[in-house]
Design a protein around this nucleic acid. Sequence first.
DNA 1: CCTTTTTTGTTGGAATTACAACAGCAATAT
DNA 2: ATATTGCTGTTGTAATTCCAACAAAAAAGG
Lengths: 225, 225
Amino acid sequence: MQNFFPILASSTLFKGMTEEELKAILNCLKAVPKNFSKDEYIFHMGDTIKQMGLVLTGSVHLSKEDYWGRKTIHAEIGQGDIFAESFASAVHKSPLNAYCAKNSTILFMDIRKVLSVCSSSCSFHNTLIHNFVAVLAEKNIKMSAKIENLTQKTTKDKLLIYLSNQSQLQQSAKFTIPFNRQELADYLSVDRSAMSMELGKLRDQGIIAYDKNTFEILNKNLTTG
Amino acid sequence: MQNFFPILASSTLFKGMTEEELKAILNCLKAVPKNFSKDEYIFHMGDTIKQMGLVLTGSVHLSKEDYWGRKTIHAEIGQGDIFAESFASAVHKSPLNAYCAKNSTILFMDIRKVLSVCSSSCSFHNTLIHNFVAVLAEKNIKMSAKIENLTQKTTKDKLLIYLSNQSQLQQSAKFTIPFNRQELADYLSVDRSAMSMELGKLRDQGIIAYDKNTFEILNKNLTTG
DNA sequence: CCTTTTTTGTTGGAATTACAACAGCAATAT
DNA sequence: ATATTGCTGTTGTAATTCCAACAAAAAAGG
């Protein structure tokens, strides 16, 4: 367990904790690491989930098969990140498969132990709960933003809403985005070339200006040609 | 506060608690109800949020204005439901406005008090934390499912994924959905009539059968005409 | 510097979708 | 029974989007 301290200390769940604090809380949680081979399944769709996982080494894929057997990968969980926390906290049944994309070491934690302050001896449990809730809440906010974008009917509206949100987040009409064109198209779930065309139109209409990842919203009425 | 006990007891956050337990925990949280008039704002975009809200009476709308002043309502929060919990837990800045659609009474709770077990005298704080996390986790799971649907490029794929998921959730090839056609179209963010046409095609191809809200997935290869 | 690779913009045709308008049907009310 | 209302399916047209292929520009590597 010793050698995992650096990973844990920089993880979303345990961030900000010292080695001493980590020792105390890991003892309190009675969490044990477990090794998995590449392509080995951690759990399957429909399994009852009571533990969350934290990737100590390697990488985990969350995947799904629909009724007709078509497979999709829904997320890749890397070192220091947690998974299955929502399934363990709420529905207790997983709608997804989890398998290791590489040889991996996973730390499993009973969700009840994570969320219940056990004894006064473990003084860092409150911090853990705060971190855990912050992770859930942040995912929530990001997903809400994504849904807002995906709900727009046209590519133009998806772009305008996305850019408007970025501008508001960075509190400036000029801002940079964390995507290249292909990534932005994937995020908005549209065709890259069609999106590129819409960006060009918006620039020609004087609504936005851009250079690579830097965008600027110009104070133009949307209806103006 | 007395008269709000029935509402609280059936709320997502405090469900399952007796009046005695509620008294203890409300005392522990030092939560105070506050009245708002119709159309009165609770907070604005960009405000720093440290408290979550619970609607005791009335109704709250979460809304947003984009860069060009176009307004949209993102959610309606009704009696017994909570809001602003994610903003208070993570980013601390609200990307949304909250205002009352009717005269309302809101119970505000400091998020730190909700998440930190204060003293041993309040034995139900652990239950509260579990409930709180369950609410966040459930929203998370629902949003993931919605994103999966919205990400599909064609109406046909949106329908197939949605129906496949419902079938898997209800563990049966035959199942009912909680939407009528217009609501389903809104959920999938497509045009109702176009969706209706796609449903007809899928039925003609022998892939699905349906009558009103009852659907059945027939064991047909997707590529079959 | 030149070559290779990656990213971005552009085009045209095929497919899909939105939109509007209307008809059929069921449920409800008068 | 009749009228009203709401829900669903159908149709045709216009607009949008996807897709594939290619060109231009930028970045990376030798």
